[in-house]
Design a protein around this nucleic acid. Structure first.
Ligand SMILES: [Mn+2]
Ligand SMILES: [Mn+2]
Ligand SMILES: [Mn+2]
Ligand SMILES: [Mn+2]
Lengths: 218, 218
DNA sequence: AAATATTTTTAGATAAGCCTAAAAATATTT
DNA sequence: AAATATTTTTAGGCTTATCTAAAAATATTT
């Protein structure tokens, strides 16, 4: 049985090891969780004793099979609750992450099963992230960051990499919600910014940073 | 801001002071929370510093005005979540208490407001307990324990005093859910047990303990 | 009223989870 | 390869919430 803190560490380690290489650095975990490296070292030792991560001093950690299962269950709960908040309680997609951070730790297998059913077995959360099934299996569509599209390529917004309030509210303002068609009108080599057409309706300029955080399916 | 543990202590102190006299003993709190009196003494000192209880050493505690407000908010959340679990997720009334014990600590005023609305502003939880409103106001109907009814009196089950799995499952077996009509056929002075008619359908004997835990409106 | 029993508080530990500062290991420059 | 910089770990503290054992206060009997 893992504590809330242990679940949060494990989830972070999972996310960090998914993006980059297998081994995750102490500093990157500390940065993600807004804690100090010393605290991370302590916690990693504890997670290692519990066999949810593999760890050799000074060599970074990687998540074990059981650790991954536990992390995916927390992520499943997080995303199901986000769907509940948006679809049933009419929250907007930029309001739900913080609340889901709390709800993801509620312990009751039956609750999650019933919630899943109540929501109609959703496949994706409000930010386009896939919801792992009971066994932790993720059914993910190919996602390309907008910045990787070529001139005149088009595709549909399928997810966002950054789920912060600020970014989501900016996308709302652009009218670039999930499901919106986007076409690349111009790519500015100088700073990585782009001119894009949103929903065949308007053309706007977005920064390189923004274009990295919008995920497209083609 | 109160911790989960502090919220649980406060809720317990509120419940204990509602039933009997105003001042609550250290031992009774310890018993309710399955902790030791020494731990209770520590916690009471802390709650007293936070002004949510009034406390004089060796004289017991009573809850303050702010304490009562905070306790009622936790109780409001607990009962709304129980309604959600039963009405929306199809849990039975004996399955929801433990899960609500976790959900009652989720912090988000907007979430509770939306949940209340989603549920249609329910007045009572699945065990017949009244749900405090946003301001902590409780709208409670008069409740009499079954054991206080006289011979041939009748009334409707409006709530239960004990919400344990075991008791609720026994009531299910009796067919004495909330809303069921009950009439007193006989009162056995010897042991306080009763013969009752349930829903004009069948007569059964119930122990004195059971008849204390069934609440009736007349 | 004195003796005894019960209740409550205090003293001293422990575990989790965090911190800062210092030491040790590893990585990067020169 | 040596010097320097960075990363990671360890050492030692702090807070919260719990415990057991002992002391102090209050309540009950005799
Ligand atoms: Mn989220
Ligand atoms: Mn999400
Ligand atoms: Mn309950
Ligand atoms: Mn209830």
């Amino acid at each position: 049985m893992l504590s809330f803190a242990e679940e949060n560490y494990l989830k972070t380690i999972y996310h960090l090891s998914k993006g980059g290489r297998k081994d995750v650095s102490t500093n990157s975990i500390a940065e993600s969780l807004h804690t100090k490296p010393a605290s991370v070292s302590d916690m990693i030792r504890k997670l290692s004793r519990k066999k949810v991560v593999n760890y050799k001093k000074y060599q970074g950690v990687n998540i074990s099979k059981e650790g991954k299962e536990k992390a995916l269950l927390v992520i499943r709960k997080h995303r199901l609750w986000e769907v509940f908040l948006v679809n049933k309680l009419k929250f907007s997609w930029d309001q739900v992450h913080e609340i889901a951070e709390q709800l993801e730790h509620i312990r009751s297998p039956l609750l999650i099963e019933r919630l899943d059913q109540f929501l109609g077995f959703p496949q994706y959360d409000p930010h386009g992230d896939p919801i792992p099934d009971k066994k932790g299996v993720i059914n993910s569509k190919p996602q390309i960051p907008l910045c990787d599209l070529k001139l005149n390529d088009s595709g549909v917004v399928i997810a966002v990499k950054d789920s912060s309030k600020e970014f989501l509210q900016y996308l709302d303002k652009l009218g670039a919600a999930i499901g919106t068609k986007i076409r690349v009108l111009d790519k500015i080599a100088y700073d990585g910014s782009m001119e894009i057409d949103i929903g065949d309706q308007k053309s706007v300029f977005v920064s390189g940073e923004v274009s990295e955080n919008i995920l497209i399916t083609s």
